[in-house]
Amino acid sequence: MEGTNPIEMLNEEVPHLQASFDSAFLIEFGNTGFGITQYMAYAILVFIVVLAVVFGVGRKLTLVPNSKFVNMVEYGYQMVRNSIGEGTIGHGYKKHIPLLATLFFFILISNFIGLIPGAKAATGSLQINWALSIVAFVYFNYWGVKAHGGWGYIKSIAPSGLPLPMVPVIWVFEFVSLVIRVLTLAVRLYGNMFAGHMALGVFALFATSFLTATINGATVAFGGLSIVWLLFEIFMYALETLVAFLQAYVFTILTAVYISLATSSH
């Protein structure tokens, strides 16, 4: 009978799901190769949301917060300042807070927008994550050079107090792990968001295709399986909500750690 094999339906549908994650152009400016992809559109949306939240809250600041929303945003900012900034960087943390808070709120709101069914997370594309991680990379190297001077920063990559013959070897290892940070920051965020949303999509497809097979006249057992997949989907959705927050937190705290490693005197 037509449409009673859920696996066949999945084989047809999964390529569509994969295609929906492509960063193809929504609008292309002529034939120039420049344009706006869906992820760029979502990134612009995130910019607008972040600006609206921050300006909206900034206008209503009072000594004692009197609205729940203002209090919530203040709590988020305070977490970045105290737990991430002061706890990790320590002395002289205040000048780094604007960048850390911007990164945190941008990634957090972008991840949460990605959780709305049908929407995509701007951080689910590798290109936008490259941009974010290059910002963080250039920033902590800039502050490292500013704290130690150019040659001093290059020397400070290897920890001090090593026996002299070991210094070049350790320096090379530390240098590789320093350069690779730009890659790991970007790919960690991308991998978590992309894989999570892919898993959500695949579980949703499983649930729908098993349900469709039952409606088209396959065994009722498929309907039961469909409910199991739906429960999995709800569980994954809860997990993704946690991951959305955790990845924003991890990105910010790692940037703070890299800043403190670059600026601290060993």
Partner: peptide
Amino acid sequence: AALAEALALL
């Protein structure tokens, strides 16, 4: 965890 995870990400 970030240092260990770097290998998996590679």
